[in-house]
Design a protein around this nucleic acid. Structure first.
Lengths: 128, 128
DNA sequence: AATATACTTCAAGAATTCTTGAACTATAGT
DNA sequence: ACTATAGTTCAAGAATTCTTGAAGTATATT
């Protein structure tokens, strides 16, 4: 039963990550990249999106370090996108920590008559 | 090594959940509710927000089933909000499944000369 | 019955994010 | 050098989401 702290600073970070992920196109891109390396044109074909839109979403994903980029060694015009594994691991851990159901504590609210949180006997005592 | 399928229908669901979570105020509300039951006024005081804004965010959290509501038994004007544990568990599982780093597969892209994915020997063969 | 309290709903404006089309950069082939 | 290709950047409009203030509900107290 160790206490896992969740400071407010982390909520801002978590929010930034969630905002990046809370977009259907970017989720689909991530899903495709989980299946392996893809170039811009491949993603555009698969998702029926213009290449500039792919670029736009990729820059958002790159900004949070979730996606890596490398140029083709033979033909440097092609660019390959891939998931940054350690970034994904950290993301996964952050989620698991923040949304961990075992973190939920029972507590009486500090306002209101708190009737609903009293036992049945306590409630009947008050009402009599 | 079992294959965990991630159908496209689930991406839409996941996106909906992520959009609800990708908001600093709602993350703070969730964080406070993890610490235990709170009423509207308590949340408003803690987060320095007007009660109608709290209500608004609560309805969004309720719509996805993440938050439960119950009226005070003694004084029904007070309303207590709490986290729906099973909803949080499902959310946690969905995240863990979708963003699981072990899902990442290596793959050669189907476009480009694929130079960067060739071995050093293969590349030197092409370039000679 | 009248007033107060705890909260919700509504509508409009503010802010943010998404998409589109055009212009731009970098590299490769002829 | 010139053209083609793969991808990026920019700016403006469209769409969505957030916040604010006022009005509305439901319940409790006097």
């Amino acid at each position: 039963m160790q206490d896992i702290p969740v400071p407010l600073a982390n909520i801002a970070t978590l929010n930034k990550q969630l905002k990046v992920l809370a977009n259907p196109k970017r989720l689909q891109i991530i899903h495709l990249l989980m299946e392996g390396v893809h170039c811009n044109c491949e993603l555009g074909d698969a998702l029926n999106m213009a290449p500039n839109l792919i670029s736009h979403h990729m820059s958002i994903l790159r900004d949070v370090g979730l996606v890596d980029v490398e140029r083709d060694v033979v033909d440097a015009r092609w660019i390959y996108f891939s998931i940054n594994v350690s970034a994904l691991e950290k993301l996964n851990q952050a989620f698991e920590m923040f949304f961990d159901p075992s973190r939920i504590k029972p507590r009486r609210p500090s306002c209101g008559p708190q009737g609903s949180l009293l036992s049945v006997e306590e409630v009947s005592l008050i009402q009599s």
